[in-house]
């Protein structure tokens, strides 16, 4: 019985370690987060949802609430900013390669201009955006932002509709004021 229990614990630990080791973002983040002049922040999903939950108690604007609903879809955020040239170009490119090969992510956009190189990688499952990683290299800085989410296009469209309604209301108000000013008798 004891042997069986130890075997289960060993298998469980191996699987956990293998999965953690297998995630290229986690691996990269752990490697560089404690280096000099590297800024890092991890926001677990629970914290994001809690903060959004608290904020929604004080926010009554419909459009802002639509934005908060969108923020609730983030399951976790990791940010790594290197200003001390700890992350070499080769390491950054290796990360992109690993994200593609081991992380099953695909390159959505790549833009290179004036020494700045930005890549956006994504893991999209049907219509669900499961993970987005934005990587930026420049002469003196490396930035990585990784977001896990449960976002779907319909959520983004809902928020855009809310912004559209707000924009139309403001335009209508502005138009009404302009018309009223014109109607006022000339002095």
């Amino acid at each position: 019985m004891k042997k069986l229990l130890y075997s289960f614990i060993l298998i469980f630990c191996s699987i956990t370690i293998a999965q953690a080791g297998g995630d290229p973002i986690k691996k990269f983040y752990r490697k560089y987060k404690k280096k000099d002049q590297v800024f890092n922040i991890t926001l677990p999903g629970v914290l994001t949802r809690t903060c959004v939950g608290i904020a929604s108690l004080f926010v009554h604007d419909k459009e802002a609430r639509a934005g908060l609903k969108l923020a609730r879809k983030a399951k976790g955020i990791r940010v790594l900013v290197d200003e001390g040239q700890q992350v070499s170009k080769a390491a950054g490119k290796a990360l992109i390669r690993d994200l593609r090969q081991k992380g099953n992510m695909e390159q959505l956009v790549a833009i290179k201009d004036d020494g700045n190189y930005t890549v956006i990688m994504g893991k999209i499952n049907g219509k669900k955006i499961k993970k987005i990683v934005v990587i930026n290299f420049s002469e003196d800085q490396f930035t990585m932002v990784a977001i896990k989410s449960r976002l779907k296009m319909k959520h983004i469209n809902k928020m855009l509709k809310a912004l559209q309604r707000k924009s139309r209301k403001e335009k209508a108000k502005h138009k009404k004021k302009t018309v009223e000013k014109k109607k006022e008798p000339m002095a």
């Binding site: 959505l108 201009d113 219509k127 296009m153 983004i156 855009l160 912004l163 559209q164």
Partner: peptide
């Protein structure tokens, strides 16, 4: 250089362009 993948175009095509522009 600029490279935009088919996947991103597919995602962007799902966005309501009119709402994006006005919003």
């Amino acid at each position: 250089s600029v490279y935009v993948s088919p996947k991103l175009i597919e995602i962007v095509s799902e966005i309501d362009i009119q709402a994006l522009d006005e919003g």
